[in-house]
Design a protein around this nucleic acid. Structure first.
Lengths: 230, 230
DNA sequence: GCAAAAGTGTTTTCATTACACCCATGT
DNA sequence: ACATGGGTGTAATGAAAACACTTTTGC
């Protein structure tokens, strides 16, 4: 991350993008291992300076795309971190975003400023460069809230998924077990899923039905006063 | 607001503080009438540049205090607005905060850059300078959410208040009527209020009991797993 | 035929809603 | 005595929670 030639009279600003993925079991986040000082060798959140003619959202999308090759993902601004001393080489204010991506679609290319790029299990991360750990925790809290109130969990799954996969995703993010029957009853009764007449393959047990999220149906029921809540 | 001598290579950043107050009847917000260009003569949200050695929260508190003389108020960061063209005289990214103040304690002193400072009824505001209307709407939405999930309504009332006052406050913010008995039952059952053995005075009807919010009790019940929700 | 996950309804429990009359005070 | 808001309880409704067995497939 290029903050080398600092001008001590100037405030810089950046975006950091917390990219969440789900591997069917645990929630992961995409981290980069920094090649350069400060914090060389530390894991950090992907981010970059925002250029003067670039919108904030655009910068966050750019960071994501440069790192993963993925476009058109769910993205949300969370919080702006600007403590005077948060960056050792000058005043840097950073606007934190989170993204939700289908982990299978991501093709990781180590960025020039990174030694490595890796998916890390969220619950096992203990520290990060700068104040990135705090940023990650804030974004994770926000994700926990958002996922109960908006139909965004689907962004982390393949287009076709089983209800058990969806449930496991919710359990991983919310860190609590959910009742299978109640979960299914509720999500089905929302009328925002398509039942594909297609079954899971390659499993050594009864194959599950596949579903997909139907954004059009969701808009319809929303018109009629439906409020997503899980 | 001093953005006169702009350097087109530099990005500036500011905080804007949406200061909410309640007059017993409607929700209000403190606006300033701009003396200088751009948008001279327009109503705007109070805000200022953040200096290089100043934390964001500190800047928001400073803006509030310079304008109202009030300290120690509830303050929350909401969202950062940074569209490239949001400010006509350069790139200015602004971090929006909202504050809740007891309207009676505020002593308005017009700031140097303002022609006037006034409390305006939130629901009657139709436009503001820059993108301030959008900022205000975003903050208002956030306040609506927050007030249901955190015991912050009290910040807008005098220390001693009646339950009807509290209910009217909720009704004004949420824009919906609430049932008197249910509201009282719920708020009383939370055990976060002190019943003062004191009555309202100067009213030409049965005087109401006065209550105060008890932060210590709130922390206690929160320890025991209580979650504020209204 | 056994292991493994899919799929399916009913009852209980609890929180929310709806609702109307008497009370205390000032004028 | 009247106008004004203060103060109070119960029944009905609906949503959430708890709970266990049969089914389908691969090996």
């Amino acid at each position: 991350m290029p903050f080398q030639k600092e001008n001590t009279d100037t405030t810089f600003f950046s975006v950091d993008n917390i990219i969440f993925g789900f591997d069917g079991d645990v929630l992961k986040v995409l981290l980069i291992k920094r090649r350069e000082e400060p914090f060389a060798g530390y894991w950090a959140l992907p981010g970059d300076r925002v250029s003067i003619d670039e919108n904030l959202d655009t910068a966050a999308i750019r960071v994501l795309e440069e790192l993963t090759g993925v476009k058109d993902v769910y993205l949300d601004q969370v919080f702006t971190f600007g403590k005077v001393d948060r960056h050792p080489s000058g005043r840097v204010i950073t606007i934190a975003y989170y993204s939700l991506v289908n982990i299978e679609k991501v093709d990781i290319e180590a960025a020039s400023f990174a030694e490595k790029v890796e998916w890390k299990e969220v619950r096992e991360i203990e520290s990060l460069a700068f104040d990135h750990f705090e940023i990650m925790v804030t974004c994770l809290d926000r994700l926990k809230q958002d996922i109960k109130l908006r139909p965004i969990g689907f962004e982390l799954l393949p287009e076709k998924f089983t209800l058990t996969e969806l449930q496991k995703l919710y359990e991983a993010i919310l860190e609590q077990d959910l009742d299978k029957r109640n979960f299914r009853k509720k999500i089905i009764s929302m009328n925002i899923l398509n039942t594909l007449h297609e079954l899971q393959t390659g499993v050594s047990h009864r194959p599950a039905k596949l579903y997909s999220f139907d954004a059009v149906k969701y808009e319809e029921v929303k018109e009629n006063g439906f409020i997503f809540e899980l």
